[in-house]
Design a protein around this nucleic acid. Structure first.
Lengths: 120, 120
DNA sequence: GTAATGTATAACCAACAGGTTTCAAAAAGG
DNA sequence: CCTTTTTGAAACCTGTTGGTTATACATTAC
């Protein structure tokens, strides 16, 4: 079946090599050779990983002479993060008083637009 | 190779059926049969998905009579979200002055990297 | 103890993922 | 042009994923 961009973003992030490539790209654009250098892996393997990242919208690419530079595109990460924010209120539901206070605060934040909760 | 929990969390989230299962579990714990009901898929297929979710730490399970109930465990989602928030300043939808300054600085760095082909 | 219920496991399969090596192709330099 | 540099693409191999059906297992009900 056709995969969505969310599918592809999470699948892309599931591989540690690809996460490392993204990490490297936070330091600036880089050619395939530069990206491949730290890895005990062939150049075509890195090219494949880059293709996956591009398919997920996580990088864009451009030519400079014979080299092809990858550029980080973090917008899909924003969308993936927003997806996971749905679960924020399930994080750390118990344990110490700080956690409880934070959970309570987050509950209030979520309902701040119209729900008045003056007692409990 | 041994996969990390981050690997397993992102891999678990890459499948839309599993994301739907997690979504259902935000409404409360549920048995395998209850979880399977909305899907055009066999019970063993759902059991496999639940096993993947459990392996990623995203659910825990307990018995009630012959049924096995799944419970959402969102802590790994928190860690995955924190990982992605490393990239927050790159999904620059709204630039503040610090973001703008950093972006400008990186543009300069990138430019010099691209030009530096005559040096070794 | 036996039957019924709910779920897990086994065996199987097609498709995909992640790596390899080899070769083709695009751009710059002589 | 021809060559070099850098990258992409093809063909291949292996292990994994996501599904199936059939069956075994654990627990409750009778």
């Amino acid at each position: 079946m056709n995969s969505t961009e969310l599918d592809r973003v999470f699948a892309a992030l599931a591989d540690p090599t690809r996460r490392a490539l993204l990490g490297r790209l936070t330091e600036g654009d880089a050619s395939v050779a530069q990206l491949a250098e730290p890895f005990a892996m062939s150049q075509p393997a890195i090219s494949k990983h880059l293709k996956v990242l591009e398919g997920a919208g996580l990088i864009s690419r451009s030519r400079v002479a014979t080299a092809r530079y990858s550029h980080l595109e973090a917008q899909p990460l924003k969308e993936a993060t927003e997806y996971m924010e749905r679960y924020k209120r399930f994080w750390a539901a118990t344990f110490d008083r700080l956690d409880a206070a934070l959970a309570a605060f987050q509950s209030i934040e979520e309902n701040e637009d119209h729900k008045e909760n003056t007692h409990d």
